[in-house]
Amino acid sequence: MHLDHTLESYTVSNKLVKIRTGEKLFFSLCTLFIAVYTQSPFLLLLILFTMSSITIWSGVGIKHYLKLLMIPLTFLLPSLFVLAFLRGSEPVLTFSVIGMHLTMMREGLELGALLMMRSMAGISCLFFLIMTTPIADILDTMRKFRMPEIVGELSFMVYKLIFVLIDEMESTKIAQDARLGYLRGKRIKSLSLLLSSMLVRSLEKARNMERALEARCYAGKMPSLKFGREDESESKVHVMSPSLILMILFDACLLVLAVEGGV
């Protein structure tokens, strides 16, 4: 199973799929806002833990979730490491590399840790959203909040074409492996061939897709999941559904804690 396919299939088959997109969007963005606002490491960890648990519980699975969390982590860690050398005045650790003296500072280290927790908390909020809600539905809801059409259309196309790229990469890689393309000494050449052929083939695929979409009068609108629901009543009856109340309560608590700053 491809990575893209599993990711996309979570969004349509998780336990939270019945909850309205607006609620999930609201919950995730509010929590994200609190994560950006608060200075308390405790709150950040609470957010990270809660959001991750919900996402994992909804059907993603802990193993895959942690794997996905590693992706942003590889970008974050190096930059935070650098931060520890730049800020503050109280040295923690000094060492020299090729004649250069490097000093790790306490303040920088603390700032780095806080930043790290904040980023992870924020990422867990967004992960919650993208792993429980199909992209078409997120865009559909954002459109209702006056997001420009062009942004929605572009986002969807970019999202779709990422998968086209991944697919092409996989099939080209297999073709190269089958002809021993990645044996020692040939790696760089094979990689450059992979990239160039990927570009050509992806363009070709993108053009085919564009034609097929055009043939069906595509005007930038992606059908949302609501077209699959038999009974419309279900989603309209409760203005305040239990899930929404729960979400609001959780966010309210967080907000109070963040503003009070007690923890």
Partner: peptide
């Protein structure tokens, strides 16, 4: 190639694409 044509993740969603855009 149906893979070029089917863009939505779920069947009904893809079938709805034309009518929705109309």
């Amino acid at each position: 190639n149906p893979n070029d044509q089917i863009v939505a993740p779920i069947v009904f969603q893809d079938v709805a694409l034309g009518p929705v855009n109309l």
